[in-house]
Nucleic acid binder design. Structure first.
Lengths: 210, 210
DNA sequence: CGAGTGTGTTACCGGTCAGTAACATCAGTT
DNA sequence: AACTGATGTTACTGACCGGTAACACACTCG
């Protein structure tokens, strides 16, 4: 239609119509799945939002279920990259990494569209045990909790496993409860709660400080 | 078909085929919505599971959305009845009510089908602001947290609001995380965590003990 | 130029969805 | 027996779903 010619693919406004269709499809799926739910969004709508069509979508993703898995895996990888970014800015300082992470959560809690964790939401929407998304969800959630536990251990907390459980479950609860009661609920206060938890939990000895 | 005559409506096995169809429909909706998700279950399947048909369903509920709201309201009322039952068995003793509630949670956490809180799940599945279910969800979640806060206040905890937030969010997180990682995750430990929270949180003075 | 590749377009498939119309059946009441 | 109300049965609508076939177009590389 009005897609005549674009000599150089610089930054285009909106849904980046100059990037390859595969990336546009993933970006559209991401926005739509997160905002409205996985089961509520059809492949036709995703293709249209990506400014392409269903055929091209199915040339890049063999089924909707695998597109969902790809969508979730991308989010899981980005969440992991936050951890490695924090490890780079606070090398060897697990406590600072935890504090940085908690700060980031507190600021991202109110503005992120208030639809909670996309992985946890997908687990609610997809109870089928054999769905390809479930392996991604379970692996990410387990890995997330274990990374928190590792940092708590390195930060010298006594009973780091229990502290990791508390941090992890408080965050999970905040993100899911935001969807029930909106920003007026206790979820918006989770940043301060986690910060207080890090400050008041007993620590035996600091492992090492570089 | 094989439904010849049942003189007295005593207890029938399975889905209680002798109760009025409205109750059977609600019971079937409850089981199916909870186990497989609201969007994943159609009205035909609910009617069949209730041993009736779609027409009878629509004579009792004017739409699926309102059936969903009824289903959630029923669960919310049962959750409230747990509170009043605890108030009856521990009159005037808010701390005992909290402990009883936490115990109940700890025991119900592992066996309840592991699909978490139906209200919270519905909030994830139904982001539409105008859906009749959303009012039920928001009201129940708000009321639940406020009841916990009231009991914490009556039990003499200092900073009862913060303790209520912690209890509430830990529970929400445990129930949603159970669906991501199953019974092997930290959600199964939430009973002990809440019990420890009640024991270690500072209390200023006991308000009254009858 | 021709071949190959990626993309757009249209139409279609079988299935399911929520919701309704029309009619048959059964039970209880008077 | 006649009426009444709740229920069962079948068939249907219009819309949407995930997924595919067939063909046309554009672009790049040789």
């Amino acid at each position: 239609m009005s897609r005549e010619k674009i000599p150089s693919e610089s930054a285009i406004s909106g849904s980046t119509p100059a990037s390859p269709p595969r990336e546009r499809i993933l970006a559209a799926a991401r926005a739509l799945f997160y905002a409205r739910g996985i089961r509520a969004v059809g492949v036709d709508e995703i293709a249209a939002a990506a400014q392409t069509n269903k055929m091209t979508l199915y040339r890049h993703f063999e089924s909707k279920d695998l597109l969902v898995a790809k969508y979730l895996r991308g989010l899981a990888q980005e969440a992991d990259s936050v951890w490695s970014e924090l490890a780079r800015s606070h090398p060897g300082d697990a406590l600072a990494q935890l504090h940085g992470w908690v700060e980031r959560i507190g600021s991202h809690m109110a503005d992120c569209g208030n639809r909670g964790c996309a992985l946890a939401n997908a687990a609610v929407e997809i109870p089928e045990k054999g769905h390809p998304a479930r392996a991604v969800i379970e692996a990410h959630k387990t890995h997330q909790r274990e990374h928190i536990a590792t940092l708590c251990r390195e930060a010298g907390y006594r009973d780091p496993e229990r502290l990791a459980d508390e941090i992890f479950l408080l965050l999970e609860g905040a993100r899911v409860n935001m969807q029930s009661v909106g920003p007026g609920g206790p979820g918006t206060r989770v940043g301060e709660m986690l910060c207080a938890l890090l400050h008041t939990s007993p620590r035996a000895a600091v492992a090492q400080s570089a």
